[in-house]
Design a binder for these strands. Sequence first.
DNA 1: TCTAGATGGCTTTTT
DNA 2: GCCATCTAGA
Length: 767
Amino acid sequence: MQNLLHNLNPEQLAAVTLPPQNALILAGAGSGKTRVLTTRIAWLIQTGQVSPAGILAVTFTNKAAKEMLARLSGMMPINTRGMWVGTFHGLCNRLLRTHYRDAALPQSFQILDTQDQLSMIKRLLKANNIDDEKFPPKTLMYFINNNKDQGLRASAVEAYDAVERKMVELYQLYDDQCQREGVVDFAELLLRTYELLARNQPLREHYQQRFRHILVDEFQDTNNLQYAWLKQIAGHGTGRGGALFAVGDDDQSIYAFRGANVGNMSSFESEFQVKNLIKLEQNYRSHGHILDAANVLIANNSRRLGKNLRTDAGHGEQVRVYEASSDLQEAQWIVDEAKNLVSEGSRRSEIAVLYRSNAQSRVIEHALFSAGLPYTVYGGLRYFQRAEVKHAIAYLQLMDNPHNDSAFLRVVNFPTRGIGARTLEQLQNAAETYGISMYAAVPYMVGKAGSSLSAFVKLIEGVRFETQQMALPELVRITLESSGLLQHYANEKEGADRVENLEQMVSAATQFVGEEGYGQGAPAHLGPPSEAQAGAAIINADGVEILDADAPMATVMSPLSAFLSHASLEAGDNQAQAGQDAMQLMTVHSAKGLEFDNVFITGLEEGLFPHESSSKEDGGVEEERRLMYVAITRARKRLYMCFCQTRMLHGQTRYNMKSRFFDELPEESLKWLSPRVQSHWFANKKATWEDAKLTGGSDNAVAQRMAEKAGTAGWRIGESVVHGKFGEGVIVNIEGSGANCRAQINFGSAGMKVLDLSIAKLERLGR
DNA sequence: TCTAGATGGCTTTTT
DNA sequence: GCCATCTAGA
């Protein structure tokens, strides 16, 4: 116990040892949030306040769940079994598998990932002859998901015009189709569980009584449905529910675009009458200047719960700021600085390059590659999303649930078996006529089309039969061979990687079977034990027998079903060579939760960061500012920020102003590495900053002489200017010469203006 | 059925 | 400028 609580600061200690009541912990970046969460759980158990079975800990990502479990088992001698630690989706999956009948799902229901969902919607639109120009599949998908995230079924959605009414209609058709196929999308996992518990009182009360302590990580990222789910399981308003311990940071809320509602934090505070609010403001990560920058920046946001980070680490170095003439030069500068860092003894893996959007990585990657600096880019295709792996998964899905039309369509003609579009169209019509799956509709097909289709069905049935008694890895191997997938890719010229990925599936299955507690030899197909065997049967006060979803997954679902869930819910790693000491390239979003000694924040330009589309949305700029806050607080020792005058974007050269966030940072914490007058026009003339110095005179003067020669009244494209009315801007283009010279100037928030250079009162922005 | 060429779109991301 | 997706034609 002493050991457990030792080294906690007073706020952390207070949070860990709070009485068993609802609590909100405002945990700033680098304040030891995960530590508090896990120590709280360990403390509750070790003081005998709760048994492991009374703990429910919810996270958003599998990574966070795993980390929590790892830390817990390192902290406690007792094992973590019986404790529920997982993602919202993972926990819901477990509940639905156990109570599949009450949830009106087939036992082997399958989970659609985003790709599957979209292709399903496309199919739906086609089948109903809907113009997909008028109803873009993606729009419909967002519509459906957003409504589910709000807890709204099609029947509950209010439509105000014809288009919306149609969308609602399609939403209903989509749900019907999912139900027929026995598949659920991600949002459905949550909504279905919520509805299950709402409808089923004994079940609801059972879980409410069981979970005495519910702990939630990254609470600011919850959407409305997730919050409702938590309220339900915590028995809000019943007077006998468990205590909800929510940990979050409103300043790090960066997922509003996918439905997260920071407002849930204050709703929680008022609705649960939270008396225990603790702020963790002691930062153990960053040096002073970095923290000052973060604090001063985020203070520009209104509607904060209010929090200020402090450190004992001392000021450290200033934030280094660099203005490049072009994105190419920005990348080169990063290379140079990174080389310096490495030669000063930094590990490459302690250097992170952050950007707002993925498109920015290309130029940087190119520069790093040319310089021979090893790097890894986060955010590529995940293992289970690769086409060949998805194909293999589809075959496995058909073994487990042949009525999954998405899986059927994906592989019915892959590798090609002479089953063309027309055949499938007919099959689809038949399926629709009889209200059955495409697989089930095959016997209704006649002629040549019919025979090639039945051959496919025979293939699936054959493999299913052949593997009846086999363990999962063996089943996977047989499937890969019998389906012809391995052959197909082996024959392809560039198929070696794909073959390797497919073969990796066998080891993935082996590993999975071991980790999930299935016997290595357990038959993959064997149905789960009867409900009486699975978990402990519980008799509630009304004499109703309830099965608790407590049993290990092995008793709730077959190895094959479990493996398929795993493939959907945990798309796998996307990190390349993990072993190598490589620089880390990623978006600011994916950097959340990570920390590095050295961090570059790149592309700090108006329109890019803050992103231009954010200014249209309500509160968009505040979210961008939080994103910037997240970026800054990733750095431990050294932070770099950079931007450029010229950038290639969408195939066009753009001239952006430096980000407004620079004006919101404390000047004394910044160190400008470059004067502000270098223009891209120079760069185009292959004149570098050094050249300008050599040619003599002040740099400004040189630039001006060159501009005057060009007859642009001394002004250059790319130059930063100040206008009395419009403020700071960047010259984007100059037309005409002499007295008729007019300039197009991007004034950022004041918009784009065309000004007559002989009339407009402009001043040069120097530094 | 396969391939080349045209088209469109383009912020962020986990499950 | 790049990528995924669609379409026309061999």
